[in-house]
Write a protein that binds this DNA or RNA. Structure first.
Lengths: 159, 159
DNA sequence: CTTGACCTTGGATTTAACTCTAGGGTTTAT
DNA sequence: ATAAACCCTAGAGTTAAATCCAAGGTCAAG
């Protein structure tokens, strides 16, 4: 059982944000004290954490509402209905994962290319890392434990 | 070579958005006609696609600017600088992938549980799919090459 | 029995990212 | 050579998601 400020602190959001989520129908406290204070249970906290995770990967509050509605309306959904919504969200999530893997690969390639060498950084650009499909990357030096002293020299460009 | 409207159409954004990105320093046309029309090259288009992909996985325009700055400022970066920025973005991307995999698993579990039956969906909730850590889900039929006829049986829950 | 940290509501303000409007110039097809 | 479809700029308006503010109620500590 948490009061609004406690839950907010625990989840690193503002109390205002929780009131806002309540207004939007995403998260309501399980109860109130006699004096009107909001009281959140552990279950509410879990719901909040779900909301925050979903937000962190780019779902809008409207989409999150939709995801959560699967639960809220439970008794009124047929499995088939649920499956439709869930599968479309699943496709959405899988598309995001693919996009991110593309970024991951490009960034990894860049990081490797600039892996600690003190040399030219001609290929030190995301776009170039993408264009330069494989191989062919300068600066490669896969030494991952470096000390700062080694980093005083520049990435000189092709000029 | 595209005019603003052409590029916008190709990438499914508004011309206004491209002018806005220009104001924000994310994407400038490579040239202008004598009359002042913006002219975008294929390279510009590629940059735009990069921006849109990054946006689609939840990067803000400010973050995207930072990613792209690796390129813009090329000659002024030391490899170590680049590596620091890139690695922090890489961690960020990897965290997002983890979050998404968590959603993917939950959604997949839900989808499996509600594999096409038209009956009650007591377990058809994201939060429950998460709580119900593994096993313990009814209707599981991990047969991945299924034909719909097999899915007429129910999602019955703990009741 | 009051001080300070917390809570309440309602409404105003902010920020990011567009999106639109007004008033005008340019290109292209007929 | 003129109408439709495009482009320009500057600046106002919109939407989502907070975030802040004002005026006041609650509660534990001293």
């Amino acid at each position: 059982m948490y009061r609004i400020g406690e839950l907010a602190k625990q989840c690193e959001v503002k109390a205002d944000t929780l009131r806002f989520y309540e207004k939007r129908g995403l998260l309501s406290p399980s109860s109130r004290t006699d004096s009107g204070y909001r009281i959140y249970t552990e279950k509410d906290a879990e719901r909040l954490r779900f909301i925050l995770r979903a937000k962190s990967v780019g779902f809008t509050l409207a989409e999150i509402t939709e995801l959560l509605s699967i639960e809220l309306d439970k008794s009124n959904w047929a499995c088939a209905d649920v499956k439709g919504l869930v599968d479309s969200k699943l496709a959405h999530v899988e598309a995001k994962i693919s996009e991110l893997k593309y970024f991951q690969i490009s960034l990894q390639r860049l990081s490797d290319a600039c892996g600690g060498s003190s040399d030219s950084a001609e290929h030190c650009s995301i776009l170039e890392a993408l264009e330069t499909n494989t191989e062919n990357i300068k600066c490669e030096n896969h030494d991952h434990h470096h000390d700062n002293a080694q980093y005083t020299k520049n990435c000189q460009s092709k000029g």
